[in-house]
Design a protein around this nucleic acid. Structure first.
Length: 592
RNA sequence: GGUCGCAUAGCUCAGCUGGAUAGAGCACCUGCCUUCUAAGCAGGCGGUCCCAGGUUCGAAUCCUGGUGCGAUCACCA
């Protein structure tokens, strides 16, 4: 029986025997560090049903628990709090009950699947810091869901068509002189992004020229010849013009090569890609269904709307008067398509920035109204923008932190610190580079994931990401320390000796307590879609471990039984760190 | 203007369903490497938890109102 249920049962008994009252629920919390105890029972909340002095009640219950519950060894009462001390045996039993440290905290996947969408880039420019947050969040949430017992499909929808791509295409056609990734040595996505910026430059110049000639600004923006030409190119694409389509395929191909390299570098993957060019017409078919069901209504001009005013929202257009689809139409169609492709999918998670909160609120509502069962399990994993001290990042103006550059910087910093410390001088070049990457990426990923997704992040490229304190490298470092202990233990392995009784050191007890919380932390992180909970948990564990490490001798313990236990504890902590970090997409090194 | 989100130490962030004296890291100051990796440990300094009301035995947490910042409210994506 679970400890809390057991305690609950006996507390109820104590109260009914001594006060003749029946408690509905009992409130437990972890005992604060400043008091002796492991579990605290809040007496205050009982006072409505149990009449009496809280201290007195606490004493009565405490005495009863010591007498009737084997795991309870002592108690003390402070004001309305009953602090219960659990026996060492309870913690040791729990620790020994962990069958396999390697899988501890994970639940095997069940039947129901979730689809997690993340990344979803436009193909006119390389990935930047904003995408990095998106990708890290989406990947991590997918991994957390898997660990919590769900089957998961990771997906992205690649926005490979539209006016933005045509802008890059046009600028390349006009100014590129046939430049290719091979000829320029540039990554494909970087190359295409270069022409997107070039387009904007030309466009702005044309606007200024028009304004100088006396054209009003608004009109100038709409009538700049280069924009008109890009729009014409989009029309040709939609009409299937062979030349335009060929150029589109060529340049998108470059971009995909670039994206693949970046994804691999970051260490994220997808089970299925969707392309907007395949899906942008989906959804139109469901307009008719929606109209029949009365979910949608048609205006006299032929446009179709969904009236959400009863839900406190506005009317939303789902089909233009000329019969063409809007973004919403596409998203409706794509969602339906995904469930067709993966029939076991019972819900979907969309990792998209918070500027689209309203869009997803509407989308989910419409899908519910259309009556899909899975529409009940849709979640918009909304996250705050990543801003620079100078303000918002703008691809067009080139004021972005490029993902590849950022990773390279982090790896370089890791290298500098490692070389300065000189602990891995015996590593081969290959091993060193591998380690720098592990640490650099670890620093970046942890830095981003430890923050609550809802909050916006201010990223200052001038101040480098920390490698000390509450950081990825600190946690990786602790893992490496543990591996060092395990290596030493393996060398000094002794044969079985007589078992001696173990008395837990307070730090050992604390560590076991935190280890014990890991499975529930994974579940909590899954139900909240929050990698930050995993990150913060890991930090707490590691902080406690380092305190243990530096204050309690391991190989200098009293007897072999104790040494064995402490080594096993290190092993357990190491495994939890490894698993937790894998949920964040972060690797851990054996040495650093 | 309507709607949504955020506001905690100089800076970056925790704070679970309301609970004890609000916690970490960075920065600053003091100690600790002939003993398991000092990317560490032990300690110090640092707070009107945006403001004002309310609910409660008890509020950073819940409710109402306000302030500030951000987002959004297109036959754009």
């Amino acid at each position: 029986m679970n400890l809390h249920t057991n305690l609950t049962k006996h507390i109820k008994e104590a109260v009914s025997q001594n006060y003749g009252a029946t408690l509905e629920t009992i409130e437990f919390q972890a005992t604060r560090k400043d008091f002796e105890g492991d579990v605290t029972v809040v007496i205050f909340s009982m006072l409505r049903t149990v009449k009496g002095n809280p201290v007195q009640i606490g004493e009565t219950i405490g005495a009863y628990l010591v007498e009737h519950v084997a795991e309870v060894s002592k108690y003390n009462v402070v004001k309305g709090f009953l602090n219960v001390v659990l026996s060492d045996a309870y913690y040791l039993d729990f620790f020994r009950s962990i069958q396999d440290f390697g899988t501890y905290g994970r639940v095997p996947p069940g039947k129901d699947a979730m689809m997690v969408e993340y990344a979803s880039p436009n193909t006119n420019k390389p990935l930047h810091l904003g995408h990095v947050r998106n990708v890290l969040l989406g990947y991590s949430v997918a991994e957390i869901l898997k660990a919590s017992g769900k089957k998961v499909y990771k997906t992205q929808i690649i926005n490979d068509r539209g006016i933005h791509i045509c802008k890059s295409m046009l600028a390349w056609q006009r100014f590129g002189n046939g430049e290719t990734p091979e000829s320029s040595g540039l990554k494909g996505d970087t190359l295409v992004g270069k022409y997107y910026v070039r387009f904007d430059k030309e466009y702005k110049a044309e606007i200024n020229k028009l304004i100088e000639k006396g054209t009003p600004e608004k009109e100038a923006k709409a009538k700049a010849p280069i924009l008109i030409e890009a729009q014409e190119m989009l029309r040709k694409w939609e009409a299937g013009d062979p030349e335009v389509v060929a150029l589109w395929k060529k340049m998108n191909g470059w971009v995909y090569d670039g994206f693949d390299a970046t994804y691999e570098n970051i260490g994220v993957d997808f089970d299925k890609n969707y392309y907007e060019s395949d899906t942008y017409l989906l959804g139109k078919d469901f307009i008719e269904t929606g109209l029949k069901k009365g979910v949608f209504e048609k205006d006299p001009d032929g446009s179709v709307w969904c009236d959400l005013t009863d839900e406190g929202l506005d009317r939303k257009i789902v089909l233009r008067s000329d019969g063409t689809a809007v973004y919403m139409t596409q998203d409706i169609g794509t969602a339906i398509q995904r469930v067709k492709d993966f029939p076991d999918v019972k819900g979907m998670i969309y990792t998209v920035g918070n500027e689209q909160d309203y869009h997803f609120k509407v989308l989910f509502l419409i899908l519910k109204k259309l009556g899909f069962s899975w529409a009940e399990n849709l979640y918009h994993l909304s996250y705050g923008m990543v801003d620079l001290p100078s303000g918002k990042m703008k691809s067009r103006e080139g004021t972005v932190v490029d993902a590849d550059d950022l990773i390279e910087d982090m790896v370089t910093t890791a290298k500098e610190i490692s070389e300065e410390l000189g602990k891995i001088d015996d590593f081969s070049e290959k091993e060193k580079n591998q380690l720098y990457k592990t640490i650099g990426l670890g620093a970046l990923k942890y830095y981003i994931l430890k923050v609550d997704p809802k909050k916006r992040i201010l990223f200052n490229p001038e101040e480098s990401v920390d490698f000390q304190g509450n950081t990825g490298p600190f946690i990786q470092y602790t893992y490496a320390r543990i591996q060092s202990i395990l290596r030493k233990a393996a060398e000094n392995a002794t044969q079985d000796q007589e078992e001696e009784a173990i008395q837990l050191h307070p730090k050992e007890k604390e560590l076991i307590k935190i280890v014990q919380q890991f499975p529930e932390t994974v579940q909590l992180a899954a139900s909240n879609y929050s990698p930050a909970l995993v990150a913060n948990y890991t930090y707490d564990l590691v902080k406690e471990f380092n305190s243990f490490y530096q204050n309690v001798p391991i190989f200098g313990a009293e007897n072999p039984t104790e040494i064995g236990f402490r080594v096993a504890l290190c092993d357990a902590v190491g495994n939890v760190i490894k698993t937790a970090f894998s949920l964040l997409g972060i690797h851990v090194p054996d040495r650093m």
